[in-house]
Write a protein that binds this DNA or RNA. Structure first.
Length: 363
DNA sequence: AACTCGGGGGA
DNA sequence: TCCCCAGAGTT
């Protein structure tokens, strides 16, 4: 427990005093209705985009009862272009509930506020902390990014297990916030994430948290937060040949200078068994049909998943001995080279190939 | 736990 | 082009 002056919360507040945003439209005046409207508009929407909408909206619907009394078409017309239109419908419905059940005002109570359509845990916390200085945590994209980096939390933040952990950390830091500064702390977190601890190129060199940031310490700033797993990874298949000569040396082939595994040494590889067979007949002496099928190697790249079928053949020889060297070959093929087992470890083998050959690579 | 909503901006 | 953004509701 550190309620000391250099806690996470204290450093964030000090930074906010000097570098935070203090002139956003919904901060003057910072009424519950205006804070609510801003929080809804800013869901999945950047400040620069939402601001002109906020100004037009608040001019046309200055108070919560004004909004409640408006027609759906009128409300939607002022939202048009912002996207996520369920936000506007929920906003309008919530305003009517406030008039009907809460005296025309936004509920002061967390559970009542949370029960309104369009207001989840984070938005409820943001509204009450900013409007009333209540001690409540928020967990938006900014806070998720800051916490995953500061604490070195791996795993996509959308995963329930990761999100639960982040809520716990948000609550933990909240205890260090001085009374009366909860509104500023909420704003500080969002400003910090939006302007300093940004997704790309964060300003770590001027960061007040840099000395205790796990991502900074471990070189994981660019890797955190863990990005959302891509949906459908294309599946590709390929065949690789594990060929050995009479001396037990292994035949490697240099990859092209561009593309996957550029310029690395790998096993001779082809997209199909047919292509692999043609390559073998062209380059090698021996019988392809005797190849031993090894277990398929699965390797995932950023943009596709490769299923590699290794085939092993012993005591084969190159058809053209002249190509038995490590010089690039002009023309269609890539350089071929027999490599002694003891020398495998010194070459730049791709990880899955190294793993495949690990049985014959000296430790 | 996965899906949907959406226009805008940056890499 | 893809990913992400001051998320929440639905299935």
């Amino acid at each position: 427990m550190h309620v000391s002056a250099d806690s996470f919360a204290h450093r964030l507040l000090s930074w906010f005093d000097g570098h935070g945003r203090h002139d956003l439209p919904w901060q003057h005046p910072r009424t519950p209705y205006r804070v609510w409207l801003s929080e809804i508009m800013l869901q999945q929407t950047q400040v620069s985009t939402a601001t002109p909408y906020f100004l037009r909206f608040i001019e046309r619907f200055p108070t919560l009862p004004d909004l409640a009394a408006a027609t759906t078409d009128h409300v939607m017309a002022h939202w048009a272009g912002l996207g996520y239109y369920a936000r506007a419908r929920n906003l309008h419905a919530a305003a009517k509930v406030c008039v009907a059940e809460h005296g025309g005002e936004l509920p002061r109570d967390f559970d009542a506020l949370h029960a309104l359509p369009g207001i989840g845990r984070s938005t409820a916390g943001a509204i009450l902390s900013q409007a009333w200085n209540d001690r409540l945590p928020i967990l938006d994209g900014n806070v998720k990014r800051v916490l995953t980096r500061f604490h070195g939390i791996a795993g996509w933040p959308g995963l329930p297990a990761v999100e639960k952990q982040l809520w716990a950390l948000a609550e933990q830091h909240l205890r260090d916030v001085p009374d009366g500064r909860l509104a500023d702390y909420t704003q500080a977190q969002m400003d910090f994430g939006a302007t300093l601890c940004t997704r790309a190129k964060p300003a770590c060199v001027v960061c007040p948290l840099q000395d205790d940031c796990a991502a900074r310490r471990d070189g994981l700033v660019a890797a955190l937060p863990t990005s959302k797993p891509s949906k459908i990874l294309p599946e590709r298949e390929a065949v690789a040949l594990w060929l050995e000569n009479a001396d037990g040396e292994i035949l490697l082939q240099r990859r092209p200078e561009t593309g996957i595994w550029a310029s690395l040494w790998t096993l001779p590889q082809a997209d199909t068994d047919s292509d692999m067979r043609d390559w073998f007949a062209r380059e090698m002496k021996g019988t392809y049909d005797n190849a031993e099928e090894l277990p398929v190697v699965v390797h995932t790249f950023s943009h596709y998943r490769l299923h590699l079928q290794p085939l092993r053949l012993r005591k084969v020889a190159l058809r053209d001995a002249v190509r038995d060297n490590d010089d690039p070959v002009s023309g269609t093929g890539q350089a071929l080279r027999w490599v002694a087992r003891g020398d495998l470890a010194t070459l730049g083998l791709p990880a899955p190939i190294r793993k495949l050959l690990s049985a014959v690579i000296p430790a």
